[in-house]
């Protein structure tokens, strides 16, 4: 069995893996990183999206051996040791999730979307997230959340907004 060395959410792992083992199963079953869920088996739904060397990949379509020597970030690795990532915060603020199953993948794909386009229009967000399916929200609030995070990430406020006023306006 090939041996791989992968950095996941800031920790380094070395493991012998079957060549056919999918990255998502390596994350979930071997590393216990169950924050990344599986929603389909044809790479359509995007629930398992993670960042590999900063680029979004569907971890059901990547073999664990392909992650050898790479740096993987899952939703669990966002905002480690500090505040939530602006994208996570925006999903909460805009009510961009209901059951939340698509949310980890949706957040990771959205972060990658902003890497390519820091100020996407509504249409660009919709097109950019075409590979991530949600069954609960109708996407409208997801689009709003991504654009809200984009605005925040373009002009980071010196002090992050307090979490106190939970009630909107």
């Amino acid at each position: 069995m090939p041996r791989i060395r992968v950095e996941v959410d800031g920790a380094t792992y070395e493991d012998d893996v079957e060549p056919r083992l999918l990255l998502v199963h390596y994350l979930r079953d071997r590393l216990g990183k169950v924050g990344t869920p599986v929603g389909c088996d044809t790479s359509n739904c995007g629930a398992c999206t993670v960042l590999m060397d900063g680029m979004s990949v569907k971890s059901c379509s990547v073999l664990a051996v392909q992650a050898d020597g790479r740096d993987v970030t899952t939703v669990e690795g966002l905002g480690i040791g500090g505040d939530e990532h602006p994208m996570q915060r925006a999903f909460h603020e805009e009510h961009a999730l209901q059951c939340g199953y698509c949310t980890p993948g949706m957040i990771m794909a959205s972060i990658d979307l902003l890497r390519e386009n820091a100020d996407p229009s509504e249409e660009e967000v919709r097109d950019g997230l075409e590979g991530n399916l949600c069954r609960c929200t109708g996407y409208q609030n997801i689009v709003k959340a991504v654009r809200r995070a984009a605005a925040e990430m373009r002009t980071p406020s010196p002090e992050p907004e307090g979490r106190e006023p939970e009630v909107m306006s």
């Binding site: 979930r28 990183k33 169950v34 924050g35 990344t36 869920p37 599986v38 899952t74 939703v75 669990e76 966002l78 905002g79 939530e84 996570q88 999903f91 909460h92 999730l97 939340g100 199953y101 949310t103 980890p104 957040i107």
Partner: peptide, 11 residues
């Protein structure tokens, strides 16, 4: 849900 600390059955 936004941090991946969810308890899905398969987890």
């Amino acid at each position: 849900l936004i941090t991946g600390r969810t308890k899905w059955t398969d987890n």
